Amino acid sequence: MKRVILIALIFITTIATAQMKSSKLNWHTNLEEAQTLSQVDNKPILIYFTGSDWCAPCKKLKEDFFESPKFKHKAEDLVLVVIDYPRRVDLLSQEQLDYNKTVIAKYNKQQTFPKLVMLNSEGREMGRISGYSPSRDTSKHFTFIDEHIQVE
């Protein structure tokens, strides 16, 4: 009986892990590659500017918004790009950090974090939203997304 329970637990864990992996978001770190995908798939690009290791609102937004099932559903209609600006130098390669700085200089000149910027496939900005409420209300962020995509 113990063996059957153990096998059942392993089976359930395996299925749950597979489902969790399949629900992971596909974040890109290169805007030019994202633009190519955007053109092929006819989807807008969502750039997420974050300070992953120091920005408390960024961490909360990631948890409350980006990791929510509702966002994961909407993300199917977007090409996602994350541009991180960490303080710890070991989190990104120097090449990636330099690249991120060029994207920040173009689309986030004020260096406000977190920031979401929506682009069309040609790189033209369609909208932006900065910050995250201490009350952890994601409604403005979902409204921002809904303004630029059509989700059933």
Rank of each mutant, 00 (worst) to 15 (best):
M1P: 03
K2A: 15
V4A: 09
I7Y: 07
A8K: 04
I10N: 05
F11V: 07
F11Y: 14
T13L: 14
T14L: 14
T14P: 02
A16R: 05
A18H: 04
Q19D: 12
Q19W: 11
M20R: 05
M20K: 13
S23Q: 14
L25G: 11
N26M: 15
H28V: 03
H28W: 06
T29H: 13
T29E: 10
N30C: 06
L31Q: 03
E32Q: 15
E33K: 15
E33V: 07
Q35P: 14
Q35I: 05
T36N: 14
T36R: 14
L37I: 15
S38D: 09
V40C: 05
V40I: 08
V40L: 13
N42L: 06
K43V: 02
P44A: 02
P44C: 01
L46R: 01
I47N: 00
F49W: 00
F49H: 00
F49Q: 00
F49R: 00
G51I: 02
G51F: 01
S52A: 07
S52G: 11
S52P: 03
D53T: 08
C55I: 05
A56Q: 15
P57W: 05
P57A: 07
C58R: 00
K59H: 06
K60G: 03
L61E: 06
K62W: 05
E63K: 15
F66P: 00
S68Q: 11
P69G: 01
K70M: 13
H73Q: 08
K74H: 07
K74S: 14
E76M: 11
D77N: 13
L78F: 04
L78C: 04
V79R: 02
L80N: 03
V82F: 03
D84T: 02
Y85S: 08
Y85K: 04
R87A: 03
R88A: 14
R88M: 09
V89R: 13
V89K: 07
L91C: 04
L92M: 10
S93Q: 07
Q96K: 12
T102D: 08
T102G: 09
A105Q: 04
N108R: 07
K109P: 01
K109H: 03
Q110T: 13
T112P: 01
T112S: 06
F113Y: 04
K115S: 06
L116S: 12
V117C: 04
V117T: 00
L119K: 02
S121E: 12
S121I: 06
E122L: 09
R124I: 12
R124E: 12
M126L: 14
G127A: 14
R128V: 04
I129D: 02
S130E: 13
G131T: 09
Y132C: 10
S133P: 13
S135P: 02
R136G: 11
R136V: 05
T138N: 08
T138S: 07
K140C: 02
K140M: 05
F142K: 06
T143K: 12
E147K: 15
E147G: 12
I149V: 10
I149M: 10
V151F: 11
